[in-house]
Every structure is written in structure tokens, then in C-alpha cells.
Design a protein around this nucleic acid. Structure first.
Length: 619
DNA sequence: GCCGTTTTCGGCCCGACTGTTTTCAGTCG
């Protein structure tokens, strides 16, 4: 019965998603791009998106095109960039039009790019408008109109021309420019040219800064509530800016408090309803403030994503309403203000949608059908199955780690230090493992605190052999197998190593399956379809590693794993007591993947986990 | 250029902040 309901709900969601036009179609996409090598001569999604964007930019700078035509190119570019399949392949098969925002015209242009290497319309446009102006227009405070003015009034065709004009002090008389904006452009050109790459940081670091600021601003007199919004609240793995919202009787009080905060390096903007600053950590913080009566509207608006909000506003418009951060203008002209987000969504006849799902990937249709899953929460986690002690590369003792897990209310905890081949991390050989077990047995004998599992993070060696013999592995309560070396091997070898571990009757989970490190290295390539298929068949769990630099599996693969019937585990990979708190980020990834508690193995009591494990050993 | 639970034509999300064209356009999120 339970199983039926679960699968039925899952299928329903999947069908709705498919009906939405493959917006959640990461699954098939990843399979096709990772299972077989992409045709080497086809343009990547990024290259296609760059061309479409350039087409839109140059059209806009030229100034003759209908504004919405420009926007259509830009929307198409965004959609192509975020697509998880090869859009060139899709276009060649006539299926790119299945993507939202891609029509017959854009598909034809993508086919043209894929087959001839260029787009004729773009080539003609380049003859009329200098390509370099697109870069000029991307400078902070310039934009297409001013770029066109620079071109027509000063003959500026690229960044170098702009530098020359600026150096001669001939910027300030260009229409649209005053002394302030000229100064701003000059400053940018001097500080290393071009549009600056804004600092990005991990979700973990951004969350820390955002929550500290929110707590401090909440104590400002007259402020009743401050919440973290934006991409931090949606749980994206890497963060470009921090959004905060405040409820205050007088909104104008909050901005100055942010500007004067010790973390603030420079104020960027300041108005009665919003403020922006840059912190010493180099990240931009946006603050919006409003009255408590419409706090729900403000929080919903600032949480985004932009695409999700646009979709909602379109729904509102179709019903004769108009939606903004101030409230929802009803058909009779009154402004309906919502103190809570539930009321905002309710006004559109939708259930509240968890922030982690607000990416315009089909979640609104799922919500409208009443088929949103109840997502897993941190409170659902009963045990920790991946953490280290100072027996290997952890920074705290076994006793300290176990005690910390106990304080978090965990029922069971796996002591899973590295195996012998990972010498760099002080990996344990069989003898040291047995000594560690003696200590575990002593602690368990006391009957206090969480149940401690004999566990390990065993290396999957470069040839696919596990770092411990089968007989020895059989003695552990929980075995996580991970790749730590040879991560750049080809897809075939990585796949073979993962499959070897998955097929072992003693391996319970695969740790950080892709090996990605955010901002440092992309994950290993492997045959996702085969790995998921065998993991499901053998009952081997795949880990969502909660370390902010890993977050691995990534959300799209976790979603695909759930659809394939694979059980997931959320592991902190903690190397200190404080890092056990990273579990919240693993939970966030799981939620972005649409995971319910039932999809996560360590939401179960240990007895059930043992049953799962013995079923696997028997099967 | 895209798209349809009012539409295959006629629309297309919304407001804040900044600087400058002193009543608003450009830019941004």
C-alpha cells in the first residue's frame, strides 16, 4: 500500500513534469550527454547561448528591433544555457521547440549554427553594428542605449575605443552621461577593465554571512523580522549575492543599519525601501524592507527565482491581477497584501511552494495539481553515516565526535575513517581499525548516547579494487566506498570502478559519487544510467555529501537517482564536531531534488537500516 | 520572437534606485 502510494505520486509528478515540456528533464539529458561522448563538432549549449545573447544585444544596440524580439533572444539564451541536454542535438532532431521559449525561428538558427558554424542573421548584424559594443554595453552603468550613444557620438566600437575616449575626458558630454556616470565608467576601466567578475562563494559561507546580518538587523529598533531570501534561501550551491528582507514599521530605518554594519565595506545604493552594500568578504548584499502586512509579498518576491516569479505574475495577469512585492492588485483594483507567503500563493489558488523548488522547472504545474511532495527536513535525519575522527584526518577525537552527534539528538552514528591507501589522510590499516573497534565497543557498552557503528570510508582504488578484503569488510556495520584518486580517468574506467563497488555485497553506500569540488574541479564523468540502474538493483545507497565545497550528488543527479529508485543517504563528512551542522546543506540539496524522508536511508531507525542491509546481502 | 484554461493575433512581469533629458529614461534585480 505504502509503496503503491509512493510510486503513484512519483509517476504523477513525472507525468506533469513531462507535460510541462521537459523542464525537469535533467534525467534523460544527463544520460545522453554522459553515457556517450557528445558529437565533438556540435556547438555546446554555452556557445549557442552566447550567440543568441549576442544577437539580442546587437539588435538592442542597433535600436530598430521591437523590444520583445530582443527579450525573446535573451530568454532563449537563458533557456539553452540551463538545458541539461545538448540543444544542438535536439534542434537537429527538431525537438528544440519542445523547450519553453524556443520557437521555430530560434530552432532554425541553432540548426544553422550547428551545421554551418555561424548564423547568417548574426553575420549581417555584425556588419551593421560593431560586435565590441556588446562588451561595452555590459559595463556597469552603460547598457545598450548609452553604448549606442557612445558609438554614434564618439565612434566607439569596442572597449579600447572607450578607454581612449575616457582618457581624453570626452565621456561626460555624451548624451545620457553626466559627470557622475562618466566618473563611474572611468573608475571601472582603470580598475582592470571589462565587466568585473563578481565574487562567488559557497552556500555554506554565504549562509553564515546572511544569517549573521539577518540576526543583527533584526535587533534594530522598529524592525520586527528579518529573513534570508534569494538564492541562499533556495539553496543554490554557489552564491553570487545575498538577499535579505525586513519587516519594519519604518522601512527607511533598516538600510542605514546595514550600511553601518561592521561587515559592510561600501554602500552601493540607498533608498527608502531598499539598500545594497558590498561586504568585506566581497559579496553584494541586497536588503528590501516593507511593512509587516505585506511581508509575505516581499519575502516571496525577493526569494525568486526570477523565472519562477515571472511565471507567477503571468498567472496573475491571466486572472486580471497584478503581482509585485507590495501585494497583489485584485481584479477590482484593491491591493491584497499578504503577511505570509502561504497567503501569496493561496491568492493564486496554489499551495505554498518550498523555496528549494522555485526554479521554474515545472514546480508550479505540480503545485497546481496538488502533487507537491513533502520534502525531507533536517529533523527527519535519525543517524549520521559519514564522519571522521583523529584516527584518520578528522580534527576531533572519536569520543568528541560521538558526543557531538549525541547532542544533536542522533540515534546512531557511523565512525567512518579512511582506509589504509589514503595515507595522506592517515588512513587506517586492519590492525588500527580493530583497535578503534575496541574503543567503539567500550562506548557502546556504556549504553549512553547514540549507537556507534563500526564503519569506514573505504577507498575504491584506481583499478576498481576495494582497499580492504571482503572478509574484513563483512565485519563492518556500515561501509561507504569512495573514489579519492584517479578522478580524471575516462568515463569507462570511472564507471567500472563505481560499478565494482556497487556490486560488492559489503558496500552500503557510495560517498561523494561524482568527486566534484565547487569552483575547483567538475565531477568525474561516468555512465549515470548504468550506475543508477545497478545501485537500484543492489540496494546500494548513493550519498549526498553535505560539505559545502562538495554538495555531491548535485541536485539534478539526486533527482534522477530518486526517479531510478535509488536510495540516498545524507552524510555530513564531518571532520570536526562543528561540521556535523553541514547536514543542513545536504538536506537542502535533497530538497532541491524533490526528496521526501522516505527517499533518504538515514531517516530510518537503525533497525530498519540493518534490515535494508541484510536484504541487500541476501539478494 | 514566443505563445494560448479568454487569444493563432496581439499581447508580452514589476518596481526601486540613480542620475540627469527637472518629469523621466536607463539600469538593475
Amino acid at each position: 500500500m505504502g509503496t503503491y502510494v509512493r510510486e503513484h505520486t512519483c509517476n504523477m509528478i513525472y507525468e506533469l513534469i513531462s507535460a510541462e515540456g521537459d523542464r525537469l528533464g535533467g534525467a534523460r539529458a544527463i544520460i545522453s550527454t554522459m553515457a556517450k561522448p557528445r558529437e565533438p563538432d556540435l556547438p555546446t549549449n554555452g556557445e549557442i547561448a552566447d550567440r543568441l545573447e549576442l544577437l539580442g544585444d546587437l539588435l538592442e544596440i542597433e535600436g530598430d528591433a521591437v523590444r520583445h524580439r530582443v527579450l525573446a533572444y535573451r530568454r532563449g539564451a537563458v533557456r539553452v544555457r540551463s538545458a541539461s541536454q545538448s540543444v544542438a542535438e535536439m534542434a537537429l532532431a527538431g525537438r528544440a521547440v519542445d523547450l519553453p521559449d524556443i520557437g521555430a525561428t530560434l530552432q532554425a538558427k541553432i540548426v544553422e549554427l550547428a551545421t554551418t558554424g555561424d548564423i547568417a542573421a548574426l553575420a549581417r548584424l555584425r556588419e551593421r553594428v560593431p560586435e565590441g559594443l556588446a562588451t561595452v554595453a555590459r559595463i556597469d552603468g552603460i547598457g545598450p542605449r548609452r553604448a549606442r550613444a557612445l558609438w554614434s557620438e564618439r565612434g566607439v566600437r569596442d572597449l579600447d575605443d572607450l578607454r581612449a575616449v575616457a582618457a581624453e575626458g570626452r565621456l561626460k558630454d555624451v548624451s545620457g552621461f553626466g559627470p557622475r556616470s562618466a566618473e563611474r565608467v572611468v573608475a571601472q576601466l582603470e580598475s582592470g577593465a571589462g565587466p568585473p567578475e563578481r565574487t562567488r562563494m559557497s552556500l555554506g559561507r554565504a549562509t553564515e554571512i546572511a544569517e549573521a546580518l539577518a540576526a543583527d538587523l533584526a535587533s534594530v529598533p522598529g524592525v520586527s523580522r528579518v529573513e534570508v531570501a534569494g538564492s541562499v534561501r533556495r539553496g543554490l550551491p554557489d552564491i553570487g549575492d545575498i538577499d535579505l528582507v525586513a519587516a519594519a514599521a519604518d522601512a527607511a530605518l533598516v538600510g542605514p543599519a546595514l550600511a553601518e554594519h561592521p561587515m559592510t565595506r561600501a554602500a552601493l545604493a540607498q533608498g527608502p525601501a531598499s539598500a545594497a552594500v558590498e561586504t568585506h568578504a566581497g559579496i553584494r548584499v541586497e536588503l528590501k524592507a516593507g511593512p509587516p502586512e505585506s511581508f509575505g509579498n516581499l519575502l516571496q518576491h525577493a526569494t525568486g527565482s526570477a523565472a519562477h516569479n515571472i511565471r507567477l505574475r503571468e498567472i496573475a495577469v491571466r486572472r486580471g491581477m497584478s503581482m509585485s512585492e507590495l501585494g497583489i492588485q485584485m481584479p477590482d483594483g484593491t491591493l491584497h497584501r499578504s503577511p505570509t507567503e502561504e497567503d501569496v500563493y493561496g491568492t493564486l489558488d496554489l499551495p505554498w511552494i518550498p523555496p528549494e523548488l522555485r526554479e521554474d522547472t515545472g514546480e508550479i504545474a505540480v503545485a497546481a495539481a496538488g502533487a507537491l511532495p513533502t520534502l525531507v527536513t533536517e529533523e527527519d535525519l535519525r543517524g549520521e553515516l559519514h564522519m571522521h575522527t583523529d584516527w584518520s584526518d578528522g580534527r576531533a577525537t572519536l569520543d568528541q565526535m560521538v558526543a557531538a552527534a549525541g547532542r544533536l539528538g542522533l540515534e546512531y552514528v557511523a565512525v567512518s575513517d579512511h582506509s589504509k591507501s589514503l595515507a595522506m589522510a592517515g588512513g587506517l590499516d586492519e590492525e588500527r581499525v580493530r583497535r578503534q573497534w575496541e574503543r567503539i565497543d567500550e562506548l557502546n557498552a556504556r549504553g549512553e548516547g547514540p549507537q556507534i557503528l563500526r564503519a569506514c570510508e573505504v577507498d575504491i582504488l584506481a583499478d576498481g579494487v576495494l582497499d580492504f578484503e571482503d572478509d574484513f569488510l563483512a565485519e563492518f556495520d556500515w561501509v561507504t566506498a569512495s573514489l579519492h584518486s584517479g578522478l580524471s580517468q575516462g568515463s569507462e574506467r570511472i564507471t567500472a570502478r563505481l560499478l565494482a563497488a556497487i556490486e560488492s555485497p559489503h558496500v552500503d553506500a557510495i560517498g561523494h559519487p561524482t568527486g566534484r569540488m565547487l569552483g575547483r574541479r567538475t565531477g568525474s564523468r561516468f555512465d549515470v544510467e548504468r550506475v543508477l540502474d545497478r545501485a537500484a538493483a543492489t540496494g546500494t545507497c548513493l550519498e549526498i555529501n553535505s560539505q559545502p565545497r562538495r554538495l555531491d550528488l548535485p541536485d539534478h543527479l539526486a533527482r534522477q537517482a530518486i526517479a531510478a529508485g535509488v536510495m540516498l543517504v545524507i552524510g555530513s563528512d564531518a571532520h570536526s564536531p562543528a561540521e556535523l551542522a553541514f547536514r543542513r546543506f545536504g538536506v537542502t540539496v535533497a530538497r532541491r531534488a524533490g526528496a521526501r524522508a522516505a527517499d533518504i536511508a538515514n531517516t530510518r531507525p537503525f533497525a530498519e537500516l540493518v534490515a535494508l542491509r541484510s536484504a541487500q546481502a541476501a539478494g
